[in-house]
Design a protein around this nucleic acid. Sequence first.
DNA 1: ATTAAGGTCTTAATTGATTAAGGAGGTTTC
DNA 2: GAAACCTCCTTAATCAATTAAGACCTTAAT
Lengths: 348, 348
Amino acid sequence: MAKVTLQTIADRVGVSRATVSYAFSRPDQLSDGLRRRILEVADELGYAGPNATARSLRRGRAGALGLLFSETLPYAFADPYAVGFFQGLAAAAEDAGVGLLILPLPHGERRTVPVRDAVVDAFCVVSLPDGHPALAEVLARKLPMVVVDEPYVPGHPFVGIDEPAAGALAAGHVLELGHRRIGVAMVGLHDDGRTGWADPARQRAAPFEAMRGRRAGYESACVAAGLDWAGVPFYELSRNSRAAGREAGHALLRAEPRPTAVLTNTDVLALGILDAAADLGLRVPEDVSVVGFSDSAAQEAGLTTIRQAKQEIGEKAGRLLLSDPPPAPERLIFPHELIVRSSTAAPH
Amino acid sequence: MAKVTLQTIADRVGVSRATVSYAFSRPDQLSDGLRRRILEVADELGYAGPNATARSLRRGRAGALGLLFSETLPYAFADPYAVGFFQGLAAAAEDAGVGLLILPLPHGERRTVPVRDAVVDAFCVVSLPDGHPALAEVLARKLPMVVVDEPYVPGHPFVGIDEPAAGALAAGHVLELGHRRIGVAMVGLHDDGRTGWADPARQRAAPFEAMRGRRAGYESACVAAGLDWAGVPFYELSRNSRAAGREAGHALLRAEPRPTAVLTNTDVLALGILDAAADLGLRVPEDVSVVGFSDSAAQEAGLTTIRQAKQEIGEKAGRLLLSDPPPAPERLIFPHELIVRSSTAAPH
DNA sequence: ATTAAGGTCTTAATTGATTAAGGAGGTTTC
DNA sequence: GAAACCTCCTTAATCAATTAAGACCTTAAT
C-alpha cells in the first residue's frame, strides 16, 4: 500500500506516465478503450487523482487567494462589517472558481511561517496596523497584493473609503444638530489591548491608519465647529463587542458634563452605548444621540450611522486580485453615506 | 528579469543549489559569512523566497485545511451559527499554524475543479445535502476528512449534536407548557430554493440529514403528545434571514386556527417571527410563543432556544483534522441544552 | 603522527505531476 | 505508389524545491 502515483498506474497498465496523465486531464488525447482501462486500474490501486500540489507546481497556479486579517482568526468575524466584506470577496472568488486561504498571523516562534508557505496566487491584506511584520512577509512574496482599509502601501492597489471625510461627516451631523458636548468611543486604534480613556497624544499615535483617519475626521469637524478637542472625552476599547460598547457608554455618560452625543466607530459599539443609556435611564435620542459606523447592525436598532459599501469593497478587492494582467496600483475610494435614523436628534 | 530560483542564486554566488536552500531553511548548516552572502545576493536578484508550492510538494505537507460549506460562499456567514463554528475551527487552525482554505462548491462546467486541485492536508465538510457531488470529490482525494452536522459518512469522523433529541426537546418544551396548536418554520431542508408550505411527504424527503432529524424530533414529540402532525402548519424557507422569518411568521400567524407556539430551526428565523408577531399586533409570549435554535442571536431578544456548543464543535473538528495519526472514525455527539427565556410561556 | 570529530559544502535522488514535440502505424488522396 | 494526414502514444524537459549521505578540510585529542 505504498503511495500510488501516475507512475504506479503507468507501470501496471504498461504505458507511459504521460499517457496516464492525459487520461485524467486531457481525455481527448487518448483512445476511449485505453482511457477506460487506465481509470479502472487507477481505481483498483486506490489512486487519489493527480496530486494537487504537484499539479499546482507544474501549472504555476495555486487556485487560491490568501487573506490576512489583523485580528486573530477567531475574532475576525465578530464584526458584521468584516462579514460583509468577506461575503463580497468570497463572491468574487467563487466566480473565478478559486479558494480563499485564510491565514493565521505569525504567532510566537514557529518553524513554518504561514505567509511564507501559503500556496496562493495573490494576497489580500485587511486592516493591518502600521509596521506589522506580516505585511513585510507578504511583500517579500512578490505576488499581487491589494490592501483593504489599511495600511496604504505605495505601489500596490488600495481599496477603502475616505476615512477622514467619513469621520467628519459623522461628527458634522451631530454638530449641525447643535450638539456641543460630544463623546467618542473607538475600537481598533491600538494593538496593545488597552481599554480606557485616551488622551489626544495616544489617539494620534494609533497604528491603525484607517481608524486614525476616521478619528482625525471627528477632530477636524469638532475643531471647525469651535470645540476644544482636548476637552472631548475619548474612550478606547480593545474589543469590538456590544459589552465593550456598554462599558464605554457607562464611562462616557457618567462624565461631567455629560455628553449629549456619542460617536462610535462601529455599529456594534453603538449598540452597547444604547444599552448603557438604557442602564442609566437616559432616553435616545432625547437625552443622548448616538452615531454608529458601517451600517452593519444598525437598521433594527434605528441607529444613525455611516454606510459604506462593504460587499462592493470585498468584491472589488477580489476582482483586482484575480485580474490578469495584475492590477495597477490604483487607490480606489468607495463612497460612504450618512444614514440618519432615530438615534440622533437635536439636543434638549 | 526572468524568474529567480534557488539555482539562479546558486549560480551567481558560485555554490550549489542545496547550499542556497540551507541558507533559507536551515541556517545552522552554513557558515555565517556564506549565509549572509547568499541572502544578500538573493535580495539583489529580487528572490521571493523558496517557492511555497515546491516546498509543499517536497515536504508532503500543504499547511492548510480545506473547508466545504453547503451554501454558496457569500451566504455561508449569514447565520451566526456558522460564524461561531468557524471561530472554533479557526482557533484550532491558528493554534497549529495552518491556514483555512475555503472552497467554492463545484459550479457549472469549469476546467479546474476546486476540490480536486485544493492544496490541503485534510477536509472539513459542513452541512452538505445527501448525495452532493462535492462529497464524492472529497472522498476521492483520500485525505483525512471530518463531517460536521451532515451528512454522516460511515468510516469517517463525525461531529454534531443529537438532532432528533434536540428537536424533541424544543417541541417538548412548548408542549409541556400546554400548547396544542404548533407551527413550524424551517430553513435548510431542501436545496431547490422553494419557499412556502411543505406537507409531511416533502418534509421527510429533505436531503439535509441534520435538519431532517431535527424535524423528526419535532414530529415525534408532537405525536407523543397526541397531536396529528399532518395538521401542523409547516412553512419552509430557502434563505436563512430575518426577512425570511418574517415572511414565515406572517403565513403561520395568519393560519386558522392560529398557532399559539412557533418552532424555528434558527435564531435568525425566530427573530423574523417576532417581527411578524409585532406586525400583526400579537404579543410574545402572551399571544404566541417562539422558540429559536442555536443560541446564536437569541440573548438580546430574550429568545427561548436550544443552545449547542458551536465553537467547541468547530474546535473539535479542527483538532481531529490536525491530529496525527489521522482521526479514528468516531461519531462525536456534543451536548445541547434548552435555554428558556421570555419568548415562551403557557398559552392564554 | 594518527585518529577522531566537527564544520561546511556538494552530489544526487526525490517529490508528482504537465506538455510540447516527435514517432509509429494505419488510412486517405491523387 | 508516394505524399499527406490522422490517431494514439512515448520521450524528455520542466516546474522549484528538500535532504540524506558523502567529500573535504581543519582542529583536537591520544
